[in-house]
Design a protein around this nucleic acid. Structure first.
Ligand SMILES: [Zn+2]
Ligand SMILES: [Zn+2]
Ligand SMILES: [Zn+2]
Ligand SMILES: [Zn+2]
Lengths: 156, 156
DNA sequence: GTCGCAATGTTATAAAGTAACACACATGTC
DNA sequence: GACATGTGTGTTACTTTATAACATTGCGAC
């Protein structure tokens, strides 16, 4: 994700969509969960549970327990509002909640940003490769490490 | 991987190929590293570092330290003899060491087996999707959770 | 209201991974 | 052989990530 964009808009947009989705589904986006979602969205870099915990504690003054964050994250992942990046043990906001998808990520080792894509070619290639071997796909994980456009241009 | 195969052959074969590769490269497959490789290969299920550590300690009587195992695994991964399954924090033997590849896995949630594939369709779809967005791929991670053939047939 | 369940708080613990430093052991040099 | 050098291993302590068990709160259905 380019560093030059109005990220406050990303955050506001994510929260609005989350509100709408949860209302529609009858899921309870409580104050805590909403705040954790906001913190996950603080950037496009996947954020660890303990980093979020720290943010949260800083906001509130008193320290929260890890479980508080993990439970909120679990809810958010279930609702498809947040994805977990397995190779980083970290979480990032979903770019397109609502539609069913499992998340494919281009994770830049330069700036740390994780760009979510939903490439039909990748998806179908995986399903095809699996089908060929009689494997039934439930949850594909695709996390591509490399360098984003802007990090290739300015090395270091 | 079918449960009905001569797995001792898998192990022996993996060790033989590892010996050959390391000799060829001038890499030192020490007794410890070789033993860890053997333990990783004890099945086709990805095995956690601490599980391997336990195996190791059991063999030797005295308990080894985690670092012992992690260092051996690091070497084995560098040499491409073992892959790390990010979504499981576990390690599995490489089915085709020698050739350069990053590993694509069909991980069965029924039996736990991880079948390694190297599907050109999946690989090229990822590179194409990345290129479209100006992203330079270094290390793709593909870990597909689901059910293998035999686990679909006999549910539960 | 009050019953019941879902969400949160609290405390403790497990699992996974790393840092720092000392020692052992090979290999090559003189 | 004595020695220097680099790589692998042992040991201890520690950090980071994640979960278990149980108490408490608070909202919604009736
Ligand atoms: Zn943004
Ligand atoms: Zn998404
Ligand atoms: Zn086998
Ligand atoms: Zn492999």
């Amino acid at each position: 994700m380019s560093a030059l964009h109005d990220h406050t808009h990303c955050i506001a947009d994510a929260l609005t969509r989350a509100d709408a989705l949860c209302t529609e589904r009858g899921a309870r986006l409580t104050a805590l969960r909403r705040r954790v979602l906001e913190l996950v969205w603080s950037s496009h870099r996947p954020r660890g549970a303990y980093a979020i915990l720290e943010d949260l504690s800083q906001q509130d003054g008193k320290a929260a327990a890890p479980l508080t964050v993990y439970r909120a994250l679990e809810f958010l992942v279930e609702q498809g509002l947040v994805h977990r990046i397995e190779s980083l043990n970290a979480y990032v906001g979903c770019a397109a909640p609502g539609a069913a998808h499992s998340g494919q990520f281009l994770v830049c080792d330069g700036c740390g940003d994780a760009a979510e894509i939903d490439d039909p070619g990748v998806g179908s290639a995986i399903v095809a490769a699996a089908a060929e071997r009689g494997f039934h796909v439930q949850r594909p994980t695709v996390e591509v490490r490399g360098l984003c456009k802007s990090c290739q241009e300015k090395p270091r």
